[in-house]
């Protein structure tokens, strides 16, 4: 039956909505969707896109009593996870580079210096994914302490991973005071958003990994295409689920802190473009919260 096939396809698209919302609204939505698409076998592309974005908006709290509050608190939670994920990934990259260039002899001291903070950072990320806020707070603070006692690692403070736990800590601590009416972020959503934010930061080159991967100055065409496609895909999703924009904002702060510290070690002069990226990060976060407030005030 065409209608059964169409209904099954719509039900797949409706999975972009949270489970609780689907239980409440799926039948009503299906009645409208199937009523408007009689004799079709596939959902219209525009309608499918609108449904996915609608589901993402609901996930970001648009149907909550206080959308701005949900957006802010869940955005902060996801921002902390993104920071910890980026910190861990950068450290793993350093370990891999040490192993590649110096073998076990170079890996051991690097692991000794970075291993404890890496393990604690990953554990804090997992605790946040499982919504164990108190445990995550303890682990983040322990990670900061662990990296603080590392003696004289060259340019240690100039590395984003050093700052990841430091920038994440206030966000994690603030999460202890999350209002009761703000639901937890599900573990799968939390990990998916963290991976998306991480992909954006890495592919756009904010984390400067590709500069290490490609020795020549010329950026390959495929990388330019990948950057544009990633940025477009991220914006398409993040303008619906605006928690992602809040989650990505502290990355700019992280990179700036690392850049300023790194430059400070060499020249004592922070770069002007580094400060601009902080302003951009703050503007993104503030803009998202203001937009949520405006949508809420205007019915």
């Amino acid at each position: 039956m065409n209608n059964d096939t169409l209904e099954r396809r719509y039900r797949t698209l409706l999975r972009s909505y949270p489970a609780g919302y689907r239980r409440e609204r799926a039948d009503e939505l299906l009645e409208i969707l199937i009523g408007e698409a009689a004799h079709r076998r596939w959902p219209q592309p525009r309608q499918a896109a609108a449904l996915v974005r609608g589901g993402l908006r609901v996930r970001a709290g648009s149907a909550a009593g206080r959308p701005k509050v949900v957006l802010l608190w869940q955005g902060m939670h996801l921002a902390a996870m993104g920071l910890l994920a980026l910190g861990a990934l950068k450290t793993i990259f350093i370990l891999a580079a040490a192993l590649t260039h110096g073998g076990g002899d170079l890996l051991r001291p690097v692991l000794h210096e970075h291993g404890p903070a890496l393990a604690l950072g990953i554990a804090a990320f997992a605790a946040l994914a499982l919504d164990r806020q108190r445990l995550a707070t303890g682990l983040v603070l322990a990670a900061i302490a662990a990296q603080a006692v590392v003696p004289d690692y060259p340019y240690g403070h100039g590395m984003p991973q050093w700052w990841a736990a430091v920038v994440a800590a206030p966000l994690v601590i603030a999460g202890l005071r999350r209002p009761a009416d703000v639901p937890r972020v599900g573990p799968r959503t939390a990990v998916a958003v963290s991976v998306s934010v991480l992909a954006l930061v890495l592919v756009l080159g904010l984390a400067r990994i590709e500069q290490l991967a490609f020795d020549d100055d010329a950026t390959p065409t495929w990388l330019v295409v990948a950057k544009i496609a990633t940025a477009a895909a991220f914006l398409w999703v993040a303008t619906a689920d605006r928690r992602m924009l809040i989650a990505v904002a502290p990355m700019f702060v992280l990179m700036t802190l690392a850049q300023i510290t790194f430059d400070g070690l060499r020249t004592d002069l922070p770069r002007v473009d580094a400060m601009a990226s902080v302003a951009l990060g703050v503007a993104i976060a503030a803009g998202m919260v203001a937009a949520a407030q405006w949508r809420h005030v205007r019915l």
């Binding site: 609204r25 009503e28 939505l29 409208i32 969707l33 408007e36 309608q47 609108a50 449904l51 974005r53 609608g54 589901g55 908006r57 609901v58 648009s62 149907a63 009593g65 809420h296 019915l299």
Partner: peptide, 18 residues
């Protein structure tokens, strides 16, 4: 109104008791 947009409006109106 698309289906998703309708229920976005309906949710807000329900929330405001309208």
């Amino acid at each position: 109104l698309a289906a998703g947009s309708l229920y976005s409006v309906v949710d807000r109106l329900l929330g405001e008791g309208l």
